Simulated assay, not measured.
Amino acid sequence: MPYEVQGVIARGKGEAVSVETVLIPDPGPGEAVVNIKACGVCHTDLHYREGGINDDFPFLLGHEAAGVVEAVGPGVTGLEPGDYVILNWRAVCGQCRACLRGRPWYCFATHNAAQKMTLIDGTELSPALGIGAFAEKTLVAAGQCTRVQVEAPAEVAGLLGCGVMAGIGAAINTGGVTRGDTVAVIGCGGVGDAAILGSSLAGASKIIAVDVDDRKLEWARGFGATHTVNSRSADPVEAIRELTGGFGADVVIEAVGRVETYKQAFYARDLAGTVVLVGVPTPEMTLDLPLLDVFGRGGSLKSSWYGDCLPSRDFPMLIDLFLQNRLPLDKFVSETIALDSVEEAFAKMHRGEVLRSVVLL
């Protein structure tokens, strides 16, 4: 019997979201139904509502979630009802060339549930990032569920499902930040602040936060930034160089996804330094850099997919650090809200008033 639940639906580009009845099918082979306990309001959900991802409306929004497994389908192993899990949007296949080379965090054939969730009239829904967790229950591929310690509150644990993991992973996994490194992070929203936190955790000696909003720069200090630069009033490249003895930072993380900030990151790194792009650009953006500068500066230009994380490895480790009071994930939670307050949360996020609003169910 399908489950009837309430979920947040985006019916059309730019339209206000609505809470509607959603039908969740029983899990099929390789699938699981999860009772959602909490789900963060991520900027990606707003991108879906604005048609910035694709036009496969209507969308069941929400993807940054933690919950408890309700049921599993045939063939599922290593997961059972009652397991406390964080959801991820990249269930690895284990068979593609990346997985077979021992690099499953690059899996080229990630997958989601095969069945569709629907509205009460049978209209098929497109779940955000293959999850759709602004709902009381959702259907996912079993590989999208990662078991973690139940002692971690769901409103904190769920944040690892997207933005916080993307930022921490951009610093540690992609950027390879290590003890004594100098790091600059351009863009101090949730992902940028997570990159700052990850750099601090890795032992960076100097962490420079760059943004146009003094309020966000103050938040960045709370996550470990040692210096801040407001790029409305100062040239960020010159400021970063001045703060690093004229050399530039060892690792510069771009967490905005814009051409101008990427160029700032490129020129603000030290020779043979690393640039990490974790901000998500839009399809029309193009980058023009002198090829001689690319050659002459050496180093690495990297893109970070989901923080190059492997959920089965990274989620339990980070939750363990949180439970040891070594990783203040709770600082990301600006407020907890009800399911019918997502539209208001989008407005607060757009105005830069919150790092994360989190829906509690």
Rank of each mutant, 00 (worst) to 15 (best):
E64K: 04
S200C: 13
N173G: 05
D193N: 15
E50M: 14
Y306V: 04
P104L: 06
G130C: 07
P81C: 10
L129Q: 12
V252T: 07
C309Q: 05
Q324R: 15
G192I: 01
A16F: 02
R90Y: 09
A91F: 03
V8I: 11
N88G: 10
I240C: 03
I9F: 07
G203Q: 11
T21H: 10
G279E: 00
V183S: 04
V276Q: 00
W105E: 11
A114V: 15
A157Q: 10
N112T: 14
L327E: 05
K13P: 04
L23Y: 05
G52I: 01
A255G: 07
W305F: 14
L339E: 03
E335V: 08
C188Q: 12
E124L: 13
P2L: 10
A98C: 12
R147V: 15
M1I: 06
F315W: 03
M349S: 14
M317L: 15
V164E: 02
W219L: 03
L301D: 01
A272D: 15
G75L: 10
D288K: 06
L271H: 11
D55M: 11
R297E: 03
E20W: 07
V212E: 00
V354Q: 01
V275F: 01
A184F: 03
G102S: 11
A265P: 00
V210M: 03
V275Q: 00
V76C: 07
G257R: 00
A345F: 05
C188K: 00
S18T: 15
G67A: 10
T244K: 05
R241D: 07
P316L: 09
E136N: 13
E50W: 10
E155G: 03
G279D: 00
H43M: 07
F223W: 04
C39T: 09
V275E: 00
C42T: 04
A338K: 15
G75H: 11
